[in-house]
Protein backbone atom coordinates (compact mmCIF):
# COMPACT_ATOMS: atom_id res chain seq x y z
CA UNK A 1 0.00 0.00 0.00
CA UNK A 2 1.28 3.43 -0.93
CA UNK A 3 1.48 5.86 1.97
CA UNK A 4 2.15 9.55 2.35
CA UNK A 5 5.87 8.87 2.81
CA UNK A 6 6.18 7.41 -0.69
CA UNK A 7 4.79 10.58 -2.25
CA UNK A 8 6.95 12.84 -0.10
CA UNK A 9 10.09 10.86 -0.99
CA UNK A 10 9.15 11.13 -4.69
CA UNK A 11 8.60 14.89 -4.28
CA UNK A 12 11.98 15.36 -2.59
CA UNK A 13 13.73 13.32 -5.31
CA UNK A 14 12.11 15.51 -7.98
CA UNK A 15 13.04 18.66 -6.03
CA UNK A 16 16.65 17.47 -5.79
CA UNK A 17 16.75 16.88 -9.55
CA UNK A 18 15.48 20.40 -10.13
CA UNK A 19 17.93 21.89 -7.66
CA UNK A 20 20.88 20.07 -9.24
CA UNK A 21 19.69 21.43 -12.58
CA UNK A 22 19.58 24.99 -11.26
CA UNK A 23 23.06 24.70 -9.76
CA UNK A 24 24.70 22.78 -12.60
CA UNK A 25 23.35 24.15 -15.87
CA UNK A 26 24.70 27.34 -17.38
CA UNK A 27 21.99 27.84 -20.01
CA UNK A 28 19.21 30.20 -18.92
CA UNK A 29 16.46 28.20 -20.64
CA UNK A 30 17.62 25.07 -18.78
CA UNK A 31 17.41 27.02 -15.53
CA UNK A 32 13.77 27.79 -16.32
CA UNK A 33 13.07 24.11 -16.98
CA UNK A 34 14.69 23.15 -13.66
CA UNK A 35 12.54 25.75 -11.88
CA UNK A 36 9.43 24.18 -13.40
CA UNK A 37 10.58 20.79 -12.09
CA UNK A 38 10.96 22.18 -8.57
CA UNK A 39 7.51 23.82 -8.68
CA UNK A 40 6.01 20.52 -9.84
CA UNK A 41 7.71 18.66 -6.99
CA UNK A 42 6.12 21.07 -4.53
CA UNK A 43 2.75 20.51 -6.24
CA UNK A 44 3.07 16.73 -5.84
CA UNK A 45 3.84 17.11 -2.14
CA UNK A 46 0.89 19.51 -1.64
CA UNK A 47 -1.56 17.20 -3.43
CA UNK A 48 -0.36 14.14 -1.49
CA UNK A 49 -0.63 15.84 1.90
CA UNK A 50 -4.03 17.24 0.94
CA UNK A 51 -5.25 13.78 0.01
CA UNK A 52 -3.90 11.96 3.06
CA UNK A 53 -4.95 14.62 5.60
CA UNK A 54 -8.44 15.05 4.06
CA UNK A 55 -7.81 18.78 3.81
CA UNK A 56 -8.40 20.84 0.67
CA UNK A 57 -6.01 23.65 1.64
CA UNK A 58 -3.09 21.80 0.04
CA UNK A 59 -4.83 21.67 -3.32
CA UNK A 60 -5.62 25.38 -3.06
CA UNK A 61 -1.96 26.21 -2.60
CA UNK A 62 -1.12 23.93 -5.54
CA UNK A 63 -3.50 25.99 -7.70
CA UNK A 64 -1.79 29.21 -6.68
CA UNK A 65 1.61 27.65 -7.40
CA UNK A 66 0.36 26.85 -10.92
CA UNK A 67 -0.76 30.48 -11.34
CA UNK A 68 2.61 31.77 -10.11
CA UNK A 69 4.43 29.41 -12.46
CA UNK A 70 2.36 30.58 -15.43
CA UNK A 71 3.06 34.27 -14.78
CA UNK A 72 6.74 33.52 -14.07
CA UNK A 73 7.04 31.90 -17.48
CA UNK A 74 5.32 34.82 -19.22
CA UNK A 75 7.59 37.47 -17.71
CA UNK A 76 10.74 35.33 -17.71
CA UNK A 77 10.43 34.34 -21.34
CA UNK A 78 10.00 38.01 -22.30
CA UNK A 79 13.19 38.91 -20.44
CA UNK A 80 14.96 35.91 -21.99
CA UNK A 81 14.05 37.08 -25.50
CA UNK A 82 15.38 40.58 -24.69
CA UNK A 83 18.64 39.09 -23.38
CA UNK A 84 19.01 36.95 -26.48
CA UNK A 85 18.42 39.95 -28.74
CA UNK A 86 21.09 41.91 -26.87
CA UNK A 87 23.82 39.30 -26.37
CA UNK A 88 23.02 36.63 -28.97
CA UNK A 89 23.46 33.81 -26.47
CA UNK A 90 21.80 32.33 -23.40
CA UNK A 91 25.00 31.24 -21.66
CA UNK A 92 25.12 32.59 -18.11
CA UNK A 93 28.91 33.01 -18.24
CA UNK A 94 28.55 35.53 -21.05
CA UNK A 95 26.39 37.79 -18.90
CA UNK A 96 28.84 38.18 -16.02
CA UNK A 97 30.11 41.74 -15.75
CA UNK A 98 32.18 41.47 -12.57
CA UNK A 99 35.51 39.73 -12.96
CA UNK A 100 36.78 37.64 -10.10
Amino acid sequence: MIGLGHYLILASILFSIGLVGVIRRKNLLMLFFATEIMLNAANVAFAAISSYHHDLAGQMFAFFIVAVAASEVAVGLGLLILLYKKYGTLDLDEFTMMKG
Binding site: F64, A67, V68, A70, S71, E72, A74, V75, L77, G78, L79, I81, L82
Partner: peptide
Protein backbone atom coordinates in the same frame (compact mmCIF):
# COMPACT_ATOMS: atom_id res chain seq x y z
CA UNK B 1 -3.83 35.72 -8.64
CA UNK B 2 -6.07 36.94 -11.45
CA UNK B 3 -4.55 40.44 -11.25
CA UNK B 4 -1.07 38.91 -11.13
CA UNK B 5 -1.77 36.94 -14.30
CA UNK B 6 -3.03 40.13 -16.00
CA UNK B 7 0.14 41.99 -15.01
CA UNK B 8 2.26 39.09 -16.23
CA UNK B 9 0.42 39.08 -19.55
CA UNK B 10 0.99 42.81 -20.07
CA UNK B 11 4.64 42.44 -19.03
CA UNK B 12 5.15 39.54 -21.43
CA UNK B 13 3.62 41.48 -24.33
CA UNK B 14 5.68 44.58 -23.63
CA UNK B 15 8.96 42.71 -23.08
CA UNK B 16 8.72 40.33 -26.02
Amino acid sequence: AAIMLLVAMVAGIILA
